[in-house]
Write a protein that binds this DNA or RNA. Sequence first.
RNA 1: GGCGCUGUAGCCAAGUGGUAAGGCAGAGGUCUGCAAAACCUCCAUUCACCGGUUCGAAUCCGGUCAGCGCCUCCA
Length: 481
Amino acid sequence: MPLQIYNTLTRRKEEFVPGTPGYVGIYVCGPTVYGDPHLGHARGPITYDVLRRWLRRQGLRVRFVSNITDVGHLVDDADEGEDKIARRAKLEQLEPMEVAEKYTWSYFDELAALNVLRPDIAPRATGHILEQQALTQELIAKGHAYEANGSVYFSVNSWPQYGKLSGRTPEDEEAGARVEVREEKRDPRDFALWKRANPEHLMRWPSPWGVGFPGWHIECSAMSLKYLGEGFDLHAGGIDLQFPHHEAEIAQAEAAGHAFARYWMHHNHVLLNGQKMAKSTGNLVLLSQLRGKHEPMYVRFYLLQAHYRSVLDFTDEGLEAAKNGYLRLLNAYREVHHRLQAAPSGHHAGLEAALDILERDFETALNDDLNTPQAIAALFAFVTELNRALAERPGRESLARAERVFTELGEGVLGLFPARVLEHQLGGELLEGLVQMLLSVREEARQNRNFKLSDAIRDRLIELGVQVEDTREGPKWKVGA
RNA sequence: GGCGCUGUAGCCAAGUGGUAAGGCAGAGGUCUGCAAAACCUCCAUUCACCGGUUCGAAUCCGGUCAGCGCCUCCA
């Protein structure tokens, strides 16, 4: 079965067919870089990272674009209030661009730790002022936008399709009636394409309408069309962006006469202890904090154990469970790698059969709207068979295939086993030598049945973070996870 | 007030018409000097509740209760 994606536009799963055979263009809404990235920021990138890796494995050439918003995102309601970056700049006494750089890099650093591949293009809004102005002019020319007082607004009334993504009608909006009406706007639903800059506004550019800055939504329309072209394949982002951000993006692009994204994906939120993560309540955990305490792969694994469209509740207990489950997979992977060094040539029928099943079930799972929990379940089922087979000393050819499949699916697609976690001896040669020496002393003690000494050595090593296991081939050790 | 989502074992979480995946935790067993890792066995007659449709429903329909999201910045 080919890949099916739940398309928010049609509200059902559809076969994903790239517009140009062999090529896929993906645009993912990135963060506004005005603060440290938290756990919630990681879910989208990890989800679409798996999608990207999966498409690549199908032999498709993927261009992955994810923007950095560094201007135009206001603090308050739709068209009032300070720019988030600018406010932060004042707070930290920095240039707005310093703020943007600082948090852009912290964002990318955290994602790298989570084994998320870098976008092919990470366009900045401030680097595309001209493109945004050009699109705004197209909209004015076509009668879908108007200038007022040095600002330009999109005229929602002029575009009947407005609401097709979120399913909202003008009546819904009126019923809500929480959008503050701004004098110069013709309709409360109208949103800014360009904003006049007050004298104290830090970020400002000249424009046909005077000095100002771009509205928040216009950047994504302009940049996605620029780098992915008309009618590009897929646009993705957080469920909260569905309205108004993505609705606005579609209206801007299509009203200007450009075919826009054909598929839309929206990932759900991560809750922290059952509550929404929000700065205002302090209920949030920064990625940097998590990284300080836990191997990032535990977090990645935790997130992938839930379907991307489900709400995921993140708890300490859940993280502990994810860690233990992850280690089960990692141990098996390491064991295969280890056994391969000295295995004689040969095939193992049971192991090969388990690999066939794994490849089949894994593919079925991911093709069903990126069902990573089921793909992981397939991996667990395989690991049980693998461990059983390992007792029978499978031959090299089968082990090699197991390692290859494990690598291709576990790391290549799910991104769970970067080289870093496979390396047992993280401490280098000195540590290697010291541990070997201690273990040989311990072995001698064990031969002499001096278990008091041998256990003391083991306990002390464990305290220091070195795990010791006695196996038929002699003692094995590893650092930490 | 409007729109929408969710409710599956102690915890997490798949499953959207054919008779409950998987992980963690827990119990017992094998292996081990003891552990660890691994393996084996057990662990929801039942899917918030009440009705209905159907040969058959966790899955569809209606209602009730509970939690959550969006409608305003938000991943």
